[in-house]
Each structure stands twice: as structure tokens, then as C-alpha cells.
Design a protein around this nucleic acid. Structure first.
Ligand SMILES: [Zn+2]
Ligand SMILES: [Zn+2]
Ligand SMILES: [Zn+2]
Ligand SMILES: [Zn+2]
Lengths: 129, 129
DNA sequence: ACACTTAATGAAAATGATTATCAATAAGTA
DNA sequence: TACTTATTGATAATCATTTTCATTAAGTGT
């Protein structure tokens, strides 16, 4: 009986999918609460971390404000707005070409398990403001 | 009289240099306290942020534990240990080839001001443990 | 050297995000 | 249905960082 299938976990995973754009734990919490008004924020954190642990989600290190979660698990890179903190995917995947884990491992002695390429910028909305 | 030259700021900047390897604010604080026992942690935070603002230091977004500061201001990338959180430079700079801000701007509509390439891995010490 | 203005400091409280605790609940099983 | 215990909700605790505010001292002018 290693794991149990609960409504909370199903709704949290579903909302992470539907929100799509790299929500914070608090944004997921507010979305889930519309379907499960008594859900606890602790459960949202627990479930999001569990999904990341299971490889069914990832977390984006944005360096601005709260941690953000990503329903995508394939390798892709992000752009974060330095003003409002929103995170978006940068499509194509062309930017990860030239990033070689073996080269990096040779250069620093670490065992490399992954990498993150994050662009910093100003989003269209904040450019106007 | 826009700005004043204080002992605290001089020692903090000097310790950031001497510590070298991407210390946290707390690590800088403990080092500075050896020379200025009454220094306040708030002053360390204030000064480190000021240095970053002035372009005389940078902060590394590592996504694990506390924020880390870097006395280097040239473009280079990092590797962070997923177990202990230590951050090291990945030399050569070869890994930033192929990262094109104009391409990224075209792909997402953001105005791109910079980027960070962070490898995730296990450091030699943690590999043995 | 002295006085003055105010930027900068130290100490402590406040904030914000995340994790830990624990009694109560409910998912899976027999 | 009864039983076991994984999961939950509520809350407290933790951790990093920022804010507040009275006090100190750097720079300036006398
Ligand atoms: Zn923005
Ligand atoms: Zn993404
Ligand atoms: Zn390590
Ligand atoms: Zn560095």
C-alpha cells in the first residue's frame, strides 16, 4: 500500500496542467481551492514536490520571488521577466544545442545530471509600463 | 553627498573577493564578523545588494537554499551540487556559445538583458558520501 | 578642531516562502 | 464492515531576506 490515489492529488496535478504557464505553489493553491475549498496549502506543496520527485513535473529556478512549477518534463529553456517574475517557455529547443554535459563534467569534476538555461528579460506587458 | 565610503562596505566587498567561491550572504556575514565583530547581517545584505546593483558583483540563481553572490561580473556559467548546494564556476566559457539573445527575443517577445546557464550535478565530495 | 546634515548602521521586528508537526480523516485491503 | 496507515488540514516552525527606526558616523563647511 505504498501510495494512495486521492482527490487532492488528482485535482492538483490537473490544475498544474491546466494553468500551464509555470504557476507558483500559491497560484496552484488558489486554482485548486475553487474545486476543493478546504484544501490545505501544505497539501499543495507536498503534492507538487511529489510530482517533481516522480518526474511528472519540474521546477523552474527563476531567482525572482517564489519557486515555479512546470508540467513539462522535456528539456526546454525559459525566460523570466525581471520586473513581474512571470516565466515563459522559449520554444524551439535550439538554445540547448551546444550544451554538453560530458564537457561540463570534464571541466568541473561534478557528475552532471541536468542543466537549466534561463534568459532574463522584460516581458511585453512590462515593456509598456 | 550621494554615497559614503564606510569600513563595513569596504570589508564586505573585500571578503566577497577573498571568499571567492559563491558564498551565501550568511557566509559573507561570518567572514566579515571576524574583522568587524559588531557588523549587522542587515548591513551585509544591504551592501551585497548594492554591489550587485552597481555591477560590481552578481548573484547566482542556484535554486537550492540561500542566494549566492559572485565577485565575478563577466559572463560565465555555474554548476550547483544537488546535495550540498555548493556552486562552482564552469570555466572555458565555451558553454555560452550558441546562446543568442536576439534569437531568444524573437522566440518569446521579451526584451532580453541576460541569461544564466546552470548545470545541476553532484560534487566530488558528495559523490563519495 | 567643531558643528551640522543625513547616509549608513545595528538591532529587532516583519515579511514571505516553504517545511515540519500532529491529531483527524479516508484510501485501500481483507 | 472493520482495520491499517498514508494522506490530509491546520498550525507552528523554519529559513532567507527586507523593513523599521533610533543611533552612529562620513562627508562638508566653519
Ligand atoms: Zn513582466
Ligand atoms: Zn517550461
Ligand atoms: Zn555536494
Ligand atoms: Zn561564478
Amino acid at each position: 500500500m505504498a501510495s494512495r490515489n486521492t482527490v487532492q492529488q488528482r485535482v492538483i496535478a490537473q490544475q498544474l496542467m491546466e494553468l500551464g504557464n509555470h504557476p507558483t505553489a500559491d497560484e496552484v493553491y488558489r486554482a485548486v481551492r475553487r474545486q476543493l475549498p478546504s484544501v490545505s496549502k501544505a497539501t499543495v506543496y507536498r503534492t507538487l514536490n511529489k510530482l517533481v520527485h516522480l518526474g511528472e513535473a519540474t521546477c523552474v529556478i527563476a531567482g525572482l520571488g517564489a519557486e515555479r512549477f512546470d508540467h513539462r518534463t522535456d528539456e526546454h529553456c525559459h525566460v523570466v521577466c525581471m520586473k513581474c517574475g512571470t516565466v515563459q517557455d522559449v520554444s524551439e529547443g535550439v538554445f540547448n544545442d551546444g550544451v554538453d554535459h560530458a564537457d561540463a563534467a570534464a571541466a568541473c569534476g561534478y557528475e552532471i545530471v541536468g542543466h537549466d538555461l534561463v534568459f532574463e528579460g522584460i516581458c511585453p506587458a512590462c515593456q509598456r509600463a
